[in-house]
Structure formats: structure tokens, C-alpha cells
Computed example of a mutant assay.
Amino acid sequence: MSTLISGMTGFGRADGALDGWTWTVEARSVNGRSLETRYRGPHGFDNLERLAKAAAQARLNRGQVTLGLQAKRAEGTEPAPRVNEAVLATYLRLANQLAGEGATPPSADGLLALRGVIEVAEEDEDAEGRAALEAAMAATVEQALDALKLSRQREGEQLTPVIHDFVGTIEALVARAELEASAQVEAIRERFTRRISELAPDAPGLDERVFLEAAALATKADVREELDRLTAHVASARALLQQPPAGRKLDFLMQEFMREANTLCSKSATTALTGIGLELKAVIEQLREQVQNVE
């Protein structure tokens, strides 16, 4: 049996380095009704968020994805800080005015701590080198997402036999229900006749009326349509497992499974068939829990 479906829980990691920079990308995902990607990266590489979300969308269909990129420069390669003399001159002029009115003169370290006085000359980095660095980081993001996708496929390998087993159990229960349902009409007729005989054993013409009432009850209790639909749902589930991404369609199919099982229980005329219906509901609920993990 080939595995085609993927899960939605996984982890991927990739590392990169270029021109004195080193970075690590981690990609995580958990279950989600649709694809939602959250990105967190270093200051100054804002374009990477758009690239990361596009890369996630190209690979994944559902799940809450978290992407984190941590980057640092090697010692000695950081841009040198410098004093913005225009900003400093403005602060000095204001400080001198205040000092003339009796305020304490500013200290050098106090002036340097003011916002905008010290700045890092990131703009000195050439545009071509910056673009190459961003492209290298984007490639590492894609590698981490590829690793995440592989991790989710491994989860799918584990989910596939579990889901097939539950579907097989449902199929077996439907077969049992079909055998039990074939005895419903006779059981209703016998029960109805016995009850009437107990209440009015000497009433004339009861046989025909009993037959008509029993036939009406048997028609109401006919579960052939529900069993046919359950059989069709079993076939649909197996087909969907070969047509990924199938998570959303399987979610809907679980609702249809449960609807038919509920109707089967409500129309049951024997305790045995009711018991099978309750078993069906329990297995369908277990299957639904597993389907929630399918992409």
C-alpha cells in the first residue's frame, strides 16, 4: 500500500552561512483547518517574510506553520557604529539652552545614549551583497520547509494504516448490520402480532389489520438506504486516501458517516442492530479523531 497522505504535525531545520553571517531556520507545524504561516526573522530582512510565506504555500495545504530565522554576524564583521553629528548638534544646542537657564550640563555618555545619536551604518553594505545574502537565507528557508514537509509525510505513513483499519472495521460492522437488518421485518411482525393477541385475543379480523400495521412499521424501520450509504462512504474514504490532499473532504465525510449511523440507531427495531449502530458511532468518532491530523 503506497502512502500518499500527509499529516499536519512536523518539524524541519536548516542552517546557512555567507560573508560572515550564519543563520538557522526552524519550521514547525500543527493541525489547522487551513494554511496559516507565521514568520519571525532578523531586522533588516523584511522581504524574507513574503518569500517564506510563498514558499510555505507552494509546499503545504493545511496547518498552522511557524517559521523562525535566527541570524548573527561573526565577530569583527559587524558594521562599525558612528555618531550622527547632525542629531548630536541638535541635542547640544537644546542642552546648552537649558544649561543657561540653570539646568545641569549634559555629560558625554548621556548625550551618546540619546536616541539617534549612535547609529549602525547598515546602509554601507552594498546592495548586491545584501541581495545575495537575502537569497541565501531564502534558500535555507526552503530547505527547512522541505524538511518539514518530509516530516509531515512520515506522519502520514503512520496515519495511513490506522485510518485503513478503522475504515475496515466500519465495513465489517455494516456487513453485520445488513445481516441483522434482514430479520427486522419478521421480528416486528411477530412482536406486533403477539402484543395484539395479548390485548384482544378474540377480536375478529385482527390478522389483516396486524399485517398492515406491521408492514407500516417494517417500512419505517427499513435501514437499507442507510446501509447502502454507509457502504458508499467506505468506498469514498478509501478513494480519498489515494487523492491527497484529502483532509477537508475526509472531515466532511466523517459527518456523513455519523449521520447515517445515528439514523440507523433511531430506526433499529432490535437490540442487536442498535448495538451495532452504537459500535459504528464509536468507531466513526475514533476515525474522525485520526482524520483531524490529515493534511
Rank of each mutant, 00 (worst) to 15 (best):
Ala99Phe: 04
Trp23Thr: 00
Gly44Phe: 05
Ala147Phe: 09
Gln64Gly: 12
Arg248Ile: 00
Arg191Asp: 10
Ala200Lys: 06
Ala132Asp: 06
Leu145Gly: 06
Tyr91Gln: 10
Val65Gln: 07
Leu148Gly: 05
Pro201Ala: 07
Glu226Ala: 09
Gln255Pro: 09
Val210Ile: 15
Ile163Tyr: 01
Ala108Asn: 01
Leu250Val: 11
Lys220Asp: 11
Arg209Asp: 09
Ala54Ile: 02
Arg82Trp: 01
Glu178Pro: 02
Leu35Asp: 11
Val185Ala: 08
Ser34Cys: 04
Leu94Met: 12
Glu142Arg: 10
Glu155Ala: 12
Gly32Ile: 10
Arg189Gln: 11
Arg62Met: 04
Gln286Asn: 13
Leu287Glu: 02
Asp15Ala: 08
Arg152Leu: 13
Ala215His: 06
Leu60Lys: 13
Gln243Cys: 04
Glu208Arg: 10
Leu230His: 00
Gln97Leu: 08
Leu212Phe: 07
Asp15Gln: 04
Glu190Cys: 02
Glu289Phe: 13
Ile284Glu: 12
Leu98Gly: 08
Gln286His: 09
Glu180Tyr: 02
Trp23Asp: 05
Met1Asn: 02
Ile170Asn: 03
Ala246Gln: 02
Asn61Ala: 15
Asn293Leu: 12
Ala58Glu: 13
Glu75Trp: 05
Ile188Asp: 03
Ala282Met: 15
Gly205Glu: 15
Ala74Ile: 03
Ala27Thr: 07
Tyr39Arg: 08
Met1Pro: 00
Ala71Trp: 06
Gly44Val: 03
Lys72Gly: 07
Ala246Thr: 09
Asp109His: 03
Thr90Ser: 10
Ala282Asp: 15
Val283Tyr: 00
Gly20Gln: 03
Ala139Gln: 11
Gly12Thr: 14
Val141Tyr: 01
Asp165Tyr: 03
